[in-house]
Design a protein around this nucleic acid. Sequence first.
DNA 1: ATGTTTATTGACTCGTCAATCAACAACCGC
DNA 2: GCGGTTGTTGATTGACGAGTCAATAAACAT
Lengths: 193, 193
Amino acid sequence: MPKLGAEPIRRAALVKATIETVGAAGSLDVTVAQIARRAGMSSALAHHYFGSKEQIFLAAMRSILSIYGAEVRGALSTARNPRDRVRAVVMGSFAAGSFRHEAIAAWLNFYVLAQSSAEARRLLHVYQRRMRSNLLYGLRPLVGERAGPVAEGLGALIDGVYIRAALVEGEPDRQAACDLVLAHLEKELECKP
Amino acid sequence: MPKLGAEPIRRAALVKATIETVGAAGSLDVTVAQIARRAGMSSALAHHYFGSKEQIFLAAMRSILSIYGAEVRGALSTARNPRDRVRAVVMGSFAAGSFRHEAIAAWLNFYVLAQSSAEARRLLHVYQRRMRSNLLYGLRPLVGERAGPVAEGLGALIDGVYIRAALVEGEPDRQAACDLVLAHLEKELECKP
DNA sequence: ATGTTTATTGACTCGTCAATCAACAACCGC
DNA sequence: GCGGTTGTTGATTGACGAGTCAATAAACAT
């Protein structure tokens, strides 16, 4: 049974299974055994590779954050001016890899975890800072000193759209979500001072 | 010890203690014993009056929702035109009784609970529908058929500001939060068609 | 006085679950 | 073919926590 070099495969399988299980339950109240079973292994093995339940969750969140980051970077890479840069950050946030039921449920629970786990809070702050600085970089040339508040509003709006999407069953409407935020952005860009 | 007519006092004490305990822990992962202790009684009594842990939480959420509803109604009562009506709904959402650390933490966890508890989901939908209809009522005369999308955006923005406030320690800045949303509203009202 | 209703709790049951461990299985270099 | 490394699990432990229950105590009714 045991083939060598299994560690990365097992870890990946556990991360995937964690996102699926948390997504299906809509809560972090899932057992390591459930996750391990979905990943096709025993719960002892999950502990063997990750050490604790919390570390399994955090690995899953890191995976989600890294997909999200890659999507935003990808969208940014084709942007040639500030306006498109800001739009890219928004559109990256609603790309297919991130704005999915499972990932959204994970996000929501991640917010909750951040209230009690220092490591989760740290991770969340990293994401928020990156998002904020991405937005500011594009916004500054467009709205000058208003960039701060505008970024604030965009970030909050994106977060709000995310958690509202957590409540609909089935996959959320990416197009509609993205358009809503982009429309808000247009309004902000209309007045330049 | 036992004085008659204790039921309503006990229930209220448990609701209060639940909000405090969940607020302090930032999670629904608190024991009935913790809540009961904070409310100055045994866990058996908590079960006696509420039947189950979930019912205790739901009672706490109903209390928060009812305070919120009262605040919005209060703000609405002095509004004399559509514009002030919409502003009242927004400002009611950031009134002192609702936009507090504890209540915000409860909200966040309520969203999570709504993913797995039918009763929590029902309760949440009641609130969302009421908020939406309050907004629409004021928005329709102002922006006509755009009222739907605008209400959508306002609702999402308010939710987003809420969960972001969950992450700051200490009491959140009500003024700033409210201003941010009101500024968004002004922008939406600028173009009337 | 006595029985009924309401209030209250300590002690208990029963299940669950994270984490550990001992043991077993396959592969590797030699 | 042997010792070390890696992979893997069933069984077990130990703790914790929701919910129950029997028992006690005060108030009330008659």
